[in-house]
Design a protein around this nucleic acid. Structure first.
Length: 884
DNA sequence: ACTCTCACG
DNA sequence: ACGTACGTGAGAGTG
């Protein structure tokens, strides 16, 4: 017999919170509601033995009830922060119990439960609804029992229709009438003034329903009759409001709600985090702890070292490989050393040093590695991909990368090593790389048996970590983001990096020579004005010259002394002739050292190309980053620097560089997620967004927008994307804070949807503890509840910015995966080479220029359709500079 | 290893 | 009263 338990999460959390003293654990986290919730769940599981289980939560502050009655729940006190901070913990707890949970924007838990009970009733399931809210009694039926908490949560009172009749003399349906007459102060439902429970019951026993009471109001004597007549509409509306909506648009698959007991290990770790000591003792997690500390990885792992002789036989074991690890030594995978690969199977792990992997006898192993239909679980696919490619060993078919999964589960996690991961998941036995290899100058590869042991353990850990993370990703709703975006993208990035971009060495050297001459002249002038030689590159020495010797005013200080950054020097420009020379020197010295010398060092003599490394697991927002060298910050804003781009050329004669960039992608994303009317209109009509903003904020016509107004509007738009603050805007526009605040106020008065988004996202971050992008990428913001103003403000701006920047990142990543597919499908020779956050750079043969100029924008603009159009500008030329 | 500065989106 | 715009990487100087 199936038995479904449905819990009204918000109601039970509230009851628990007010019933128990305000407990907190050693890190100051309040835990009383979580504790109450836990005891409730344990009791239900033990006593009711449910086969199906679901906890429903309210979601979104506006429900359809507000559309009808905007004072709905108006009288309710705000949820205290001590309670709201516990909701994410409760959700974690439920996850550890492996109980399903559900919420839907715009609906309350009642409605979800009402919908579920109806479906369960039709299925012939027995249902127990657990809540503190008597409204829910209206759901009682032969199969549906309602459990109402009493005295907080320690006791429950069960109601089926018979008990309801016995205690109140009402049918379930009449509960709505009861509320209609007496109202409900906690939901701000008015009812009829002066009618309480007693009177309402008396009236219903006599007349049966609100409608009948109202129809007979004339025959009700005295003041009561008058009141009923005067508030007939209130009564009708109140009944309406008290009616639980039972048609929530949700698909119900009973499999999801099936309950097969809790995950003892996960529950134990949640209890430990919350410091529920009494429960830990009572429930005896020692068994679980033991498996925590003594995992399969440590239990004698059989390891074998493969040789040229034995690797042939190992080929038979390939179908049993559960996971593998490719060890790559060195930061930059393009000139790293592949040490070898470890293969983990159910009964043993095998290590193949690189030379064995490359031996003739290992041909079947290499075929397996290259086979997209042989699934592989790994750690840091991208690194292995690039390093193996240089060894001439293709790798395909990776279905799980624990490093990538760790990043998605928490993109701010900075220690992405298997050693750290293993201990995070309580798997001991994976040593730290530094322990095996040493670090820095002392780095040394030890004997092969030690290497084998270490790498085999890594491989074994990967399998176990992956099986936990698969579930975590699923729970976070990240399956598609992971399998259809990030994992395929790893392969695309690997291809781009291996391909590399051709750089004209001559061109860089020519620019470099010119720079050297000008720098030498500037140095001469600077020494002259300073009255002696010093190291201009040293902020300390420069400060001494400027502020001590030349007595210029100090406008800004750093931790260590007066600041000499460009902003300060700009303000000092008119005060002394030396300053503008220093500014010029800085600009040119930067170009020389970072871009001329820096890039020249990265050109590989073997192919004349630069191969950058895209990092997929660094940026907290979901963006990529680029290293060795960074090709995402090649100069463009100033003409002098922009010329560097002339050195980036196609790798084949007659080909062109084609660059396509999204126009205003972040503001378009903001328009989509905020649904702000004016912002959407601006993009639908393809207007210049900064001019349009100026028109709306200053209330002028297009012709009246002058340069300064547009500049201010542009700064406000940037501010909006970054998470606006009056201080930040005042700095940027060099105006007072009060003026900046006025600008922002004017902006929000017009772009009200944007204001609503900013308020809502901060609130959501506080409730959930994280924010998400359109594709469910997540970023946790624990500091959003900090009492320290700075920390909290920073978290709030991040909450505003991350969904915008992150969604833009989602979109271009999607476009890259789709673009790679299209290039392959349509057998184009063109190659994708670079990504610069909102721009993709290709090299294209002459005959494909027309096709690509059409295809690239088409794919980019439609990668993820939004409620506003995306716009892409595309250009091409003989080098990157000319593709503008 | 850390700080300052500056290049990009 | 507080004190910052969001996200990165690299080079040079200093400790």
């Amino acid at each position: 017999m199936s038995k479904l338990i449905l819990i009204d999460g918000n109601s039970i959390a509230n009851r628990a919170f007010y019933a128990l003293p305000l407990l907190s654990n050693s890190s100051g986290l309040h835990t009383n509601a979580v504790f109450g919730f836990t005891t409730m769940l344990l009791k239900l599981i033990e006593e009711q033995k449910p086969t199906h289980f679901l906890v429903a939560f309210d979601a979104g502050k506006i429900t359809f009830r507000h559309t009808d009655y905007k004072e709905y729940k108006g009288g309710r006190a705000k949820t205290p922060p001590e309670l709201s901070e516990q909701f994410p913990l409760i959700k974690d707890l439920i996850r550890a119990f492996t109980i399903s949970q559900f919420e839907l924007e715009g609906y309350e838990a009642d409605d979800i439960i009402g919908t579920m009970t109806r479906a369960a009733d039709e299925q012939g399931m027995d249902v127990l609804v657990v809540t503190g809210d008597k409204d829910m009694l209206q759901l009682a039926s032969d199969r549906v029992t309602i459990a109402i908490t009493r005295k907080g949560i320690s006791e429950i009172e069960l109601y089926d229709p018979a008990q309801l009749k016995e205690r109140y003399g009402l049918t379930p349906d009449q509960i709505r009438d009861l509320k209609g007459l007496m109202g409900d102060s906690s939901d701000n439902i008015p009812g009829i003034p002066g009618v309480g429970e007693k009177t309402a019951l008396k009236l219903l026993h006599e007349y049966g329903s609100v409608e009948e009471v109202l129809a007979n109001a004339g025959s009700i004597k005295g003041k009561m009759g008058e009141k009923i007549q005067a508030h007939a509409d209130d009564a009708r509306m109140s009944k309406e409001l008290a009616t639980i909506f039972r048609d929530v648009p949700m698909s119900i698959s009973w499999e999801e709600q099936a309950y097969n007991g809790y995950d003892k290990q996960a529950l134990g770790s949640v209890f430990r985090k919350l410091e529920f000591k009494s429960l830990l003792e009572k429930m005896d997690f020692s068994g679980a702890e033991e498996t925590d500390e003594e995992p399969a990885v440590l239990e004698e792992l059989n390891t074998r070292i493969l040789t040229e002789e034995s690797v042939g036989d190992f080929a038979e074991k390939l179908p049993q490989v559960l996971s593998l690890h490719v060890e790559v030594i060195g930061d930059n995978p393009h000139n790293a050393v592949v040490l070898g690969a470890a293969f983990n199977t159910e009964d043993a792990a095998y290590y193949a040093p690189l030379d064995v992997l490359k031996a003739e006898a290992a041909e079947p192993v290499r075929r397996w590695l290259a086979d997209p239909d042989k699934p592989k679980k790994m750690c840091d696919l991208h690194r292995a991909l690039v390093a193996l490619a240089w060894e001439g060993i293709p790798l395909e078919g990776c279905v799980f990368d624990v490093m990538l999964a760790t990043y998605l589960l928490d993109p701010t996690e900075s220690t992405l090593t298997l050693n750290a991961l293993a201990s995070k998941y309580k798997l001991s036995g994976v040593k730290d790389d530094a322990e095996v290899f040493g670090k820095g100058a002392k780095f040394k590869v030890p004997e092969v048996d030690q290497v084998s042991e270490h790498l085999c353990r890594k491989a074994a850990a990967i399998y176990q970590i992956a099986s936990i993370q698969e579930k975590e990703l699923e729970d976070n709703g990240m399956n598609r983001l992971y399998h259809e975006l990030e994992l395929p993208l790893s392969n695309v990035l690997g291809d781009m990096e291996k391909q590399g971009i051709k750089v004209n060495k001559q061109e860089l050297e020519d620019i470099g020579r010119e720079l050297s001459e000008r720098i030498a002249q500037l140095i001469g002038h600077i020494y002259e004005h300073a009255g002696g030689e010093f190291n201009i590159n040293s902020p300390k020495q420069l400060g001494e010259i400027l502020f001590d010797r030349l007595n210029l005013p100090v406008y800004k200080k750093t931790k260590t002394g007066p600041s000499t950054d460009a902003e300060v020097l700009e303000r000092l420009r008119t005060k002394h002739e030396i300053v503008s020379h220093i500014l010029d020197y800085r600009t040119l010295a930067k170009l020389q050292s970072t871009y001329i010398e820096g890039l020249l060092k990265e050109i590989r003599p073997s192919d004349g190309k630069i191969h950058t490394v895209y990092k997929q697991t660094i940026a907290a927002t979901g963006r990529l980053s680029s290293q060795y060298p960074n090709l995402q910050n090649i100069p463009i804003r100033l003409e002098e620097g922009r010329k560097i781009r002339k050195a980036f050329v196609p790798s084949e004669p007659g080909w062109r560089i084609l660059a396509a960039d999204y126009s205003q992608i972040e503001l378009r994303v903001l328009a989509h997620i905020s649904h702000d009317e004016r912002l959407m209109e601006a993009f639908h009509e393809n207007m210049d967004i900064h001019t349009k903003t100026a028109m709306d904020v200053f209330g002028v016509s297009e012709a009246e927008v002058d340069k300064n107004m547009r500049r201010s509007a542009k700064a406000v738009n940037f501010g909006i994307v970054y998470g606006i603050s009056d201080y930040g805007l005042s700095q940027n526009l060099d105006i007072t804070r009060a003026e900046a605040a006025k600008f922002i106020e004017q902006y929000f008065a017009v772009f009200q949807g944007v204001r609503r988004y900013m308020d809502d996202i901060i609130k959501k971050a506080r409730e959930d503890g994280y924010v998400t992008t359109l594709l469910q990428r997540r970023r946790y913001l624990p500091e959003i509840k900090a009492s320290n103003y700075n920390l909290r403000s920073f978290a709030e701006r991040t909450a505003m910015n991350t969904p915008i920047q992150g969604t833009a990142a989602d979109i271009i990543k999607l476009a890259m995966v789709q673009m790679a597919e299209r290039l392959q499908e349509e057998k184009l020779k063109s190659r994708m080479l670079l990504q610069v956050h909102d721009e993709l750079v290709f090299e294209v043969p002459e005959e494909e220029l027309e096709t690509m100029s059409r295809l690239v924008p088409e794919v980019m603009e439609n990668a993820l359709p939004l409620d506003v159009p995306l716009k892409v500008d595309v250009e091409h030329g003989i080098n990157w500079y000319e593709a503008k």
